[in-house]
């Protein structure tokens, strides 16, 4: 019988295809490997990321859902909680115990109760409300705090880039 991780991923894939939450598309890259997913996330409305469609990939460990997957954006991102190489830094993706930034309380960490859908929804809310204390991208955090105008401009240009529209300037 196939591994429990595989079955759970299949179940989640099915669930996401049948009842896709708004603004999220996600699924395995190929049906041969359910442990690497691609996701498309739309920027939340009313924020500087509004209108953007951001591609990301999720890599699941073989003991999923006991360990959290890794998520990284495959497009350029400028956000306090996203490393410059695209890796997403939110507490839901960290297993209880390891705390890369040393500020997360354990009850917002990964647990098997979480799911791809919840991760992606958290990422959307992270896009809407960055946590500038985390500082995965210090430049972005600083800009978010001190120069919101500039941050919005950078975000807008990113949105245009993901949509293939040339930037206004």
């Amino acid at each position: 019988m196939a591994g429990s991780a595989l079955r759970r991923l299949m179940a989640e894939y099915k669930q996401l295809t049948l009842n896709p939450p708004e603004g999220i598309i996600a699924g395995p890259t190929t049906e041969e490997n359910y442990f690497e997913w691609e996701a498309l996330i739309t920027g939340p409305e009313g924020t500087c990321f509004e209108g953007g469609v951001f591609p990301a990939k999720l890599i699941f460990p073989s003991d999923y859902p006991l360990s959290p997957p890794k998520m990284s954006f495959t497009c350029d991102m400028f956000h306090p909680n996203i490393y410059s190489d695209g890796r997403v830094c939110i507490s839901i993706l960290h297993a209880p115990g390891d705390d890369p930034m040393g500020y997360e309380s354990s009850n917002e960490r990964w647990s098997p109760v979480q799911s791809v859908e919840k991760i992606l929804l958290s990422v959307i809310s992270m896009l809407a409300e960055p946590n500038d204390e985390s500082g995965a991208n210090v430049d972005a955090a600083k800009m978010w705090r001190e120069d919101r105008e500039g941050f919005n401009k950078v975000a807008e240009s990113l949105v245009r880039k993901t949509l293939g529209i040339p930037t206004s300037k």
Binding site: S4, L66, S67, P96, G97, N107, S111, P112, V113
Partner: peptide
């Protein structure tokens, strides 16, 4: 039971409420 068993190998908390 089996799911709990494998989770307890990592963390000894309730998955839902910790």
């Amino acid at each position: 039971t089996s799911c709990l068993r494998s989770w307890f190998q990592r963390h000894q908390t309730c998955p839902t409420c910790r």
